[in-house]
């Protein structure tokens, strides 16, 4: 029983958890959400651009997209965050006037996310039947308008589940900005749990931080499954037989 008590004390010390929970929720959670949402949105925009470049007829654009994607998908996130966060910090300080590492943290997360999201968008856009582009062009739309109005919207719809997965991964990877050194008010969920653990020598604050991540990621995972299923089977609408054509067929 001693061993179990010891384990419970190490991981499930309610007192230590209670102490850290207020700052986890009021400081850590908003910061994590800022990092993940900002880089998610910017990464989606950059990713869409990369996808369109990868699909363009211009060989230079295709190669640029290819190289970018290989680079940022092939590097560990923590390396990119460190290199950009530290390497560009003098420039960022001059531009923004602060030492806040968030702009560079968001930039690094954005660059990484864009590489993955670009591939997600590309596969989605490529999965749209060729007849869609042909029908749109036959109506008189230009290639650009056809892509914008007809092909890309369908492609994006198909990859919504993959996009949400990518967002889940951003929520978790946002923890890596701790390597850039964060002021007390800039700490996100992981760093707050980690600091509390270092101060107390007890792992319970990290367990609490983990629970906060899970509260966000588990529902999102199930939301992915839900929209995935919905996209596959369609909204439950009633299908009716062809009332008009059938009689014509019978009469003749």
């Amino acid at each position: 029983m001693d061993l179990l008590d010891q384990l419970a004390e190490t991981f499930l010390d309610w007192g230590e958890m209670a102490k850290v929970i207020p700052s986890l929720l009021t400081v850590g959670l908003p910061n994590t959400l800022i990092l993940a949402l900002a880089s998610g949105i910017l990464g989606s925009l950059l990713g869409l651009m990369l996808a369109l470049m990868a699909l363009s007829r211009n060989i230079v654009a295709r190669w640029a997209a290819r190289i970018y994607t290989d680079l940022f998908r092939g590097l560990p996130a923590i390396l990119v965050i460190l290199v950009i966060g530290i390497g560009l910090s003098p420039i960022a300080r001059e531009l923004t006037g602060t030492r806040n590492p968030y702009p560079l943290g968001i930039l690094a997360l954005t660059l990484i996310a864009a590489a993955y999201i670009g591939e997600i968008f590309r596969s989605g856009i490529q999965s749209v039947e060729k007849g869609q582009l042909e029908a749109s062009r036959a109506l008189g739309f230009s290639y650009g308008s056809s892509m914008r109005l007809v092909v890309v919207p369908q492609g994006i719809r198909r990859v919504l589940p993959a996009l949400v997965n990518q967002f889940i991964s951003l929520l978790k990877d946002s923890s890596l900005v701790f390597v850039l050194g964060l002021a007390a008010s800039d700490r996100e969920i992981f760093r707050i749990g980690n600091d509390a653990m270092a101060n107390t020598g007890n792992l319970s604050p990290l367990v609490a931080a983990g629970v906060v991540y899970l509260i966000m990621t588990v529902p999102l995972t199930h939301f992915v499954n839900f929209i995935d299923h919905r996209l596959r089977t369609g909204r439950p609408e009633k299908k009716e037989p062809d009332e008009l054509a059938a009689p014509i067929g019978k009469k003749a």
Partner: peptide, 9 residues
């Protein structure tokens, strides 16, 4: 087949 005639008409 039963839908062809409506379109042809």
């Amino acid at each position: 087949p039963e839908l062809v005639k409506g379109v042809l008409a």
